[in-house]
Design a protein around this nucleic acid. Structure first.
Lengths: 337, 337
DNA sequence: AAGCTTTGCTCAAACGATTGCGCAAAAATA
DNA sequence: TATTTTTGCGCAATCGTTTGAGCAAAGCTT
């Protein structure tokens, strides 16, 4: 059980030079015309001493880490947890590893994570940005391929793949209107994030000019926010709205909780609609109508886009055509409104 | 905007040698009696050229990556997503980065991930093992500090921190008995995993010898499994059990779904109890009684344990006293039984 | 047999940092 | 002034790979 085996020990054991060993072990044998005898001997001893290449040294030399940096603003949020899960597995399929960082919605931590990614020589970055400006990410993007996911910037040179939140919000709002609701409370999340802004835009553009009463409240994608806003709006027995549009599943949960506390029946007293496709929305009673984000599609396209850039740059070509795509979500109609 | 700055460019810019620059930049200045003048000049130019150390080179030289490998069997499972979130943040607090791998319950992928961790020179590993034997992990554990979390092995030399699933299952079962339920269906998850075995043991030991009818079914921690087992047991209008013990929150969701399909009211027709502390259990109607795992406590102890080993080995000491701890969970009583 | 090609391999320089050892100059001591 | 001590820093090896360039021996051609 040799404690450590490297290319050098194999070299001396087989009598060949480290160069030859390296070329055999990296599959460059025939390119450099290594003899079959050498190949066999080297691979055999490599297996025998259980050789595992030092990926750190390899990275240092080749400038390729086979690692992607994944940056999310809150891995404890089930939405980002699911997203991360999908992406990690997609990357694993391509033989890439994932360095995961959580910015916790803080620009400063985002910046730190990006520096760390750079120092670790990741081959690419997939990020749900929290910064208000694209500047920082664009700068990094010149060194390392970056693809934004879920959130994007208005005018940016960076590729992104996101849900079409504007379209989604329109679908949801129009659905509520068609159902005859007359006064709607929209509870939003982080106001600086693009998904939130787009959902808000979709909501207001669908509703403005119509004889509908509405209000917008809230400022975080959290259960507490959902709860607080509903309590505040419906306090003291008032019932100022007949429908609620929760801008995320977490907000929805808070909403449900508050309505229960207020003794209002979801679907009967107050119609409820939500965003996100957390499976458990189907297990609530009543199941909640929501705009389901095409998470898998978004992730797959983002990963594919990233690798196109990586490969192009690796081959010394310039970046492929800029991909900035919004994938339309789907309305999953249940009985909450 | 210099494209790349390394210790060498700084050296030539300041007129000092790379050694001096390195020592200043790693905070070893006074230890090596570097003059204040040199320190100031070097730090100033480092800042000016926006120097970021190459963490790969640093790792290669120092054999320390400041990275921990985290191995989970399914990041898409909300339970492991939450767990990962907590751990990643705990590690970040200590200035450590996380390399995340998903074994998808497959021994082979676990093995690959461990090899990858080794190659990447992680400073430590936190793993939810899927292997049936501890051998592999123990072998790695001799090279790299390893702490098991959530799942453990019966007899192992590896440290672990897990929920006391046996105690949890006893609490749950005895609660059901106290409530007067007479026939209980237990739906289990992955039968080879220790948490499942312990929950099963807790369940059977609590119930055996008592005049209670019971059955055990199922084999995965999935929604589908929960659904299937209930449908199978309650099919054709039969109502063979008056309570169900779901061994995980995912199984519970399937159970809820099936009961709804069968037109059986949770809490009235059938009592339901579950494991895991997914927050949404409180938003179901009725809210579900469950054994809440002390996830944060478990994570914190696991991380602390890991770093004790890391630091001991770094200092050339032998490993600290073996920590193998089961943290007792708490029963969160709601209205589902 | 002389020259050219091919075969099969080795040498040594990177990649970007850290670090034991050593050494000249300045300061302190005798 | 001669010797010792301290101060401040540089040299060069090292971590484990990859890779361009080069070179001897064998094979082929004429």
């Amino acid at each position: 059980m040799p404690v450590k085996s490297n290319i050098f020990t194999i070299a001396s054991q087989t009598g060949y030079s480290v160069s030859t060993v390296s070329r055999v072990l990296t599959g460059q044998a025939e390119k450099y015309r290594i003899s079959k005898k050498a190949i066999d001997l080297i691979t055999a001893t490599a297996r025998q001493v259980n050789y595992q290449p030092d990926l750190v040294a390899q990275t240092l030399r080749t400038r390729q880490s086979h690692t992607i940096g994944l940056l999310v603003p809150g891995i404890d949020n089930p939405f980002f947890a699911t997203l991360s899960g999908i992406i990690i597995n997609l990357l694993a399929c391509r033989g890439y590893h994932t360095l995961l960082a959580d910015s916790r919605e803080l620009e400063q931590e985002e910046e730190q994570a990006l520096q760390m990614f750079k120092g670790r020589k990741v081959d690419g970055i997939i990020a749900v940005p929290v910064a208000t400006s694209a500047a920082n990410l664009e700068k990094i993007g010149r060194d390392i391929p970056v693809v934004l996911i879920d959130r994007h910037f208005k005018k940016t040179t960076l590729p992104y793949v996101c849900t079409d939140n504007y379209a989604g919000a329109r679908m949801a709002t129009e659905f509520l209107l068609k159902r005859g609701y007359k006064s709607i409370l929209a509870i939003q999340g982080v106001t600086t994030s693009m998904p939130n802004q787009e959902r808000l835009r979709g909501f207001t553009e669908s509703i403005e000019g119509k004889p509908i009463k509405y209000a917008i409240a809230g400022d975080t994608f959290s259960v507490e926010n959902g709860r607080d806003q509903v309590i505040k709006a419906f306090r003291e027995g008032k019932r100022p709205f007949d429908a609620i549009f929760a801008f995320s599943a977490t907000i929805l949960l808070g909403t449900i909780d508050a309505l229960r506390e207020l003794n209002l029946k979801v679907g009967k007293d107050v119609g409820v609609i939500s965003f996100d496709n957390n499976g458990f929305l189907d297990f609530l009673d009543p199941a909640v109508t929501r705009v389901e984000q095409p998470l898998r599609e978004v992730s797959e396209l983002a990963v594919a886009t990233l690798f196109e850039i990586i490969e192009a740059r690796r081959d010394g070509l310039r970046d492929p055509d800029l991909i900035q795509k919004l994938i339309p979500p789907a309305l999953a109609v249940r009985s909450s409104c």
